[in-house]
Design a protein around this nucleic acid. Structure first.
Lengths: 166, 166
DNA sequence: CACTTCTTTCACAACTTCGTGAAGCGAGTA
DNA sequence: TACTCGCTTCACGAAGTTGTGAAAGAAGTG
């Protein structure tokens, strides 16, 4: 029997796999994607390594590798209760913004290589112009993404208030 | 000897490989990425299949597969001169915007699966709230990207005028 | 200083992805 | 209808990923 407050484990697991799968399609490695989806479904936003291994039916080694990925890209942070040997992983705030839009390093590289390209082709050629325009687009996008984070914060605030009101 | 107007083939090729490599790192399959980079360096924005094969040193089969990818994601269009048997591929306008930000279909799927998740967890739980907020973020992002295209068009116009002025 | 508990590292196997060569196919000529 | 030219399809081999089990490592505890 499942009480009213008890979670429908079946349905939650299905959500984890589906959403993890979509994330994987967008380029996130499989295991990190599944772990992220699993963290999303917790009330606390935290899971121990053992819980992750159990939920997703994967080996401790797989957990280890996947959380290393997630921590290096700063999507989850590792914590440990004093006096415990268990690692606890927590979703950081703004994960979605970070994960979907923080491509800073990539944009720098794109800018550099396009600059080389403009020089190689000559700024006065049609091809050179196209590259220059491409570079300008990425610079524009870079700026837009920066201001978008602020707009999201405002939007989120309003949304939370309205949701409260319901 | 290379005349002033002749292209530095070496440098252009290096650019193609570097930029193609960066694109590949962002998730675009290798061959399509290289072809895209090669098209960028042409004055006309057009290349025949044979030219692509020659420039990139790949087999006709590889060209075939890669351009199929590029046409299905609508980044290049295929054309054919009347009375010729050669296919010509042309970069479509706004490729960068399309390629980097048009994730419409993906956003629809994310919205759907997150809606399922909210139901599975219960909108009144902490986890349900997190999923709801996540869904709201993607909806917000979707709207932002739509208006961003307009802003880019305006920005591009201004930029072109200034560039002219130099 | 052993013992327990949990995490990480490592070599390997399974699975995918990707580009090639060869053959096939379609469309325009003679 | 036979010929040619160019694109596409297909099976295969090479290369790269990814998750596993086993063993080592690290950090509390008695």
């Amino acid at each position: 029997m499942t009480s009213a407050t008890e979670r429908d484990t079946q349905a939650v697991s299905q959500f984890v796999e589906r959403f993890g799968g979509i994330l994987a399609d967008t380029g996130v490695p499989r295991m990190p994607a599944r772990i992220l989806a699993a963290l999303l479904t917790t009330d606390s936003g935290r899971l121990t390594a053992a819980e992750i291994a159990d939920l997703l039916q994967i080996s401790p080694a797989a957990v280890s590798g996947a959380v290393r990925y997630l921590t290096t890209v700063q999507i989850v942070s590792r914590e440990r209760e004093p006096g415990s040997r268990r690692d606890v992983y927590r979703m950081r705030d703004n994960v979605w913004f970070e994960a979907t839009f923080r491509k800073d390093q990539m944009l720098v590289m794109i800018d550099e290589v396009l600059t080389e390209g403009v020089e190689a082709l000559g700024a006065d050629t049609d091809a050179g112009l196209r590259l220059d325009e491409t570079r300008e687009f990425f610079r524009f996008a870079h700026g837009e993404l920066g201001s978008m984070l602020d707009r999201w914060r405002v939007h989120r605030e309003k949304w939370m208030e309205e949701r409260q009101g319901d």
